Simulated scan of single mutants.
Amino acid sequence: MTGMDTATPDTPKTSDGKPLLMRLGIGLFALGMLAVLAVFVLFAAGMEDLPVWLSVAAGVITPLGLALGLFALVREHKGK
């Protein structure tokens, strides 16, 4: 051993080098933001009774994706 060995984190990486957990978080956040945008557009168009699944997607998927992305970021930083 030369002392130049680097520790590799145990998180699975994709082909572009980002951790799988980070990519999942980004995808969920983007999907949630699309749901938030759809809620705003439908409400602005005059619809009052929006589907419950759309409201749940906007309210749950967005922060879940953000939390997952932040968790992956912290986990990757601690692995270095």
Rank of each mutant, 00 (worst) to 15 (best):
V56F: 11
L73R: 11
A35R: 07
A44I: 09
F29T: 14
A72S: 14
P63S: 09
G59D: 06
A58K: 12
G46V: 05
L34E: 04
L64W: 09
A72D: 06
R75M: 13
A35K: 08
V39N: 09
V41I: 14
G27H: 06
L31D: 02
A58M: 10
A38G: 12
L64P: 00
S55M: 13
I26E: 10
L64C: 12
I26W: 08
G46N: 01
H77E: 10
L50G: 03
F43T: 13
L37E: 04
L50D: 01
W53E: 10
G46M: 03
V74I: 04
F71H: 14
G65H: 02
L31W: 04
M33V: 10
F29H: 07
F29P: 00
L31F: 09
A30K: 07
W53K: 14
S55Y: 06
A72R: 10
I61D: 00
A30P: 02
A38E: 10
V39H: 00
H77P: 00
V52P: 00
M47K: 09
E48H: 15
K78R: 15
F40Y: 03
V74M: 02
G59W: 00
V39D: 03
S55P: 05
M47P: 03
I61Y: 05
W53I: 03
I26Q: 14
P51T: 07
K78H: 10
G59K: 07
A45T: 04
L54Y: 07
L37P: 00
S55E: 06
T62F: 11
A30C: 03
S55F: 01
F43C: 01
H77S: 13
I61L: 14
T62N: 14
L42T: 08
L64T: 15
I61P: 02
H77Y: 11
F71S: 12
V36W: 13
E48G: 09
V36P: 02
G46I: 02
I26G: 08
H77F: 04
R75P: 11
A72T: 05
L54S: 02
F71I: 10
E76Y: 11
A38T: 15
V39C: 15
L50C: 03
L34D: 00
A45S: 11
E76S: 09
M33G: 05
D49M: 15
L28C: 06
L28H: 13
A30H: 05
A35D: 08
L54R: 03
V41T: 05
V39G: 12
L37S: 04
V36A: 09
F71T: 11
A45E: 03
V60S: 14
A58H: 08
L28Q: 15
L54F: 05
K78V: 12
V41Y: 07
P63A: 08
L70R: 08
A57G: 08
L64H: 00
F40S: 09
L64Q: 10
L28A: 15
L31R: 06
R75Y: 14
L64Y: 06
L42E: 00
I26Y: 06
M33S: 10
G59N: 10
A58W: 04
G46L: 06
R75G: 06
L54D: 00
L28G: 12
L42P: 08
L73H: 05
A44F: 15
L37R: 07
A67M: 09
L31N: 09
L73C: 12
A72P: 04
A38I: 12
V74K: 10
M47Q: 05
T62A: 15
V39I: 13
V56E: 01
